[in-house]
Simulated scan of single mutants.
Amino acid sequence: MSRPVQLLGCALLVAALAACGAGGGQNGTEGQGKKERKAPTMDMQQAGQRSEAILDGTLAAIHPSVKWAYGAPAEAACSTGLNEPTDTTTVTRSRNILTVVSEQRRGNLLGLVQRYWERQGFRVVSANSDKDMPRIRARDADGFTVSLEVGNIGNVSVSAGLGCAENSAMTYPTGTPGHPGGPKAEELRPREHSAFWSSNEPLRQ
């Protein structure tokens, strides 16, 4: 019943990644309407592995630590502006934080993660400071996009991905929903208590 929360977050990131990967300027010939595309810098397997590494680093940077579970991966075929296939696919991986993060501590979590991403070379490209469903998104020089967002049931998810990687077979970490060794459904609803992150007391600066 809560599954659309995570699917919406993934869909937004996939759309952003596809827009970045399929972009480009005119090829210099008037009237043809085709866009110049950059060659893929890596294949889907490499993009998936790099995305998982980015998420591993992000979660390891959160102190006190939080409990988490793998989110459902997402892939979306890229195409030209004329809907022609490009033999490339947008790859997105995600993690769902199972620790309850109170409204009073959400800003602390977003700030901590943003500072970590910036130290890793990411640049914030959009932020939503909505009280109930804040979100932050950043991108690095290699084209990877990361996001952290709060869903409508207070769930927090972190996603990472690359737009338009070269088509290839992929493997997934054990525990990935929908794949061998993983649960049949995503774990979305936070249920683990933390003396720090679940506290309703504002953090003193």
Results as ranks from 00 to 15, higher is better:
193 H>N: 13
127 A>I: 08
131 K>W: 07
76 A>Q: 15
167 N>R: 12
179 H>G: 00
16 A>P: 01
200 N>A: 08
185 A>D: 08
40 P>I: 02
107 G>Y: 02
51 S>C: 01
80 T>E: 07
8 L>A: 14
156 V>S: 03
150 V>A: 15
50 R>Y: 02
138 A>I: 02
31 G>C: 00
66 V>K: 04
177 P>W: 01
142 D>N: 15
63 H>R: 14
81 G>R: 10
53 A>S: 11
84 E>K: 11
126 S>Y: 08
205 Q>T: 08
3 R>T: 13
9 G>T: 04
79 S>R: 11
130 D>I: 01
174 T>C: 07
196 F>A: 05
173 P>W: 05
202 P>W: 12
161 G>Q: 04
67 K>M: 09
165 A>I: 03
30 E>H: 08
68 W>C: 01
156 V>A: 06
183 P>I: 05
138 A>E: 00
75 E>V: 10
60 A>L: 10
112 L>M: 15
89 T>Y: 05
70 Y>D: 01
164 C>N: 04
46 Q>K: 15
5 V>C: 08
18 A>M: 09
17 L>N: 14
177 P>Q: 06
64 P>R: 09
11 A>C: 05
42 M>K: 10
66 V>E: 05
43 D>M: 02
98 L>T: 04
101 V>I: 15
170 M>L: 12
53 A>D: 07
175 G>Y: 04
97 I>H: 04
148 L>V: 15
190 P>W: 05
41 T>W: 00
179 H>R: 01
26 Q>G: 14
60 A>Y: 05
104 Q>W: 08
183 P>C: 03
7 L>T: 14
189 R>A: 11
75 E>A: 09
33 G>K: 04
70 Y>V: 00
16 A>L: 08
133 M>N: 15
